[in-house]
Design a protein around this nucleic acid. Structure first.
Length: 251
DNA sequence: AACTGCAACAACCGCCGTGCG
DNA sequence: GCGCACGGCGGTTGTTGCAGT
């Protein structure tokens, strides 16, 4: 008979949550937990579908959610993790306490992707505001079966990988995709140094150098780590000798 | 002051993986 | 082993606020 629709369209609220709805959801979860998202809205008296409630809680209402701007270290961590994990936002979010996959995804698409594009040496830099050479939503054909394929692609061929390498000042203007592939298969220290410490000679590098000097240490397997004091969290930014495996294993 | 276009972010949609009967 | 229900995930869209003209 097939799966029931995610939310019965009849009589359920959609769109932005009101403060009242937020309050109902929070107080209900505090009292009863969220063992069953589908039943929750009915029990709580919310005219929302379970999915919507879950999303609201996970992305906004959960007490340990960290709001506000991303720090430089967080952004760098996202970029680095994206090289390894691709578009697996939830996996990346798992490495950034207090940040949600949705938030990271948004930051990637708004700030970081743009930032990487701006480092492209061959491409004319877009002026501070009037950029928009590309449409808001990428011209990727909607849905189809490409969702899975795309994420697979992202983690395998990793488009931003290309951006990063061509973004590096030391990289030649024209680098073939084969170069990226070979690099990807052998992520070594030079890659991490390039990606993390050479993206912007003037500002970015110095910031990271400061961070590095202040917080860098070696973990038990010799990986270099950066500590974000604000998040109270160590980023394993320079995986060596199986560091990537450690990182992935920790997911 | 009004209009326009863009950036940022919240929320939705639909598919997938997994647990359970 | 099979099918269903559910949670989770990633891609996409809608809305809003703001900066530039």
């Amino acid at each position: 008979m097939g799966r029931a629709p995610c939310c019965e369209k009849m009589g359920l609220n959609r769109g932005p949550w009101t403060p009242e709805e937020d309050q109902i959801l929070v107080s209900f979860i505090h009292q009863h937990g969220h063992s069953n998202w589908r039943a929750l809205p009915k029990q709580a008296g919310l005219l929302r579908c379970g999915k919507s409630c879950r999303l609201r809680w996970m992305n906004y209402l959960k007490p340990d959610i960290k709001r506000g701007n991303f720090t430089q270290a967080e952004e760098d961590a996202i970029i680095s993790l994206h090289q390894i994990l691709g578009n697996r936002w939830s996996a990346i979010a798992a490495k950034l306490p207090g940040r949600t996959d949705n938030e990271i995804k948004n930051v990637w698409h708004t700030h970081l992707k743009k930032r990487l594009e701006d480092y492209q040496p061959t491409k004319p830099k877009t002026s501070n505001k009037k950029k928009s050479t590309k449409p808001k939503s990428q011209s990727v054909p909607a849905k189809s079966k490409s969702t899975k394929t795309e994420s697979e692609l992202a983690s395998s061929s990793n488009p931003s990988f290309e951006s990063l390498f061509s973004a590096s000042p030391s990289a030649s203007d024209e680098v073939s995709s084969e170069t990226f592939t070979s690099h990807e298969e052998d992520i070594d220290e030079s890659f991490w140094n390039e990606t993390l410490y050479s993206q912007d000679e003037e500002n970015h590098t110095s910031n990271l150098d400061e961070l590095q000097q202040e917080f860098q240490h070696l973990d038990s397997v010799g990986n270099e780590m950066i500590f974000d004091s604000e998040m109270d969290f160590w980023f394993d930014v320079l995986p060596r000798s199986g560091g990537e495996q450690d990182l992935l294993a920790g997911l």
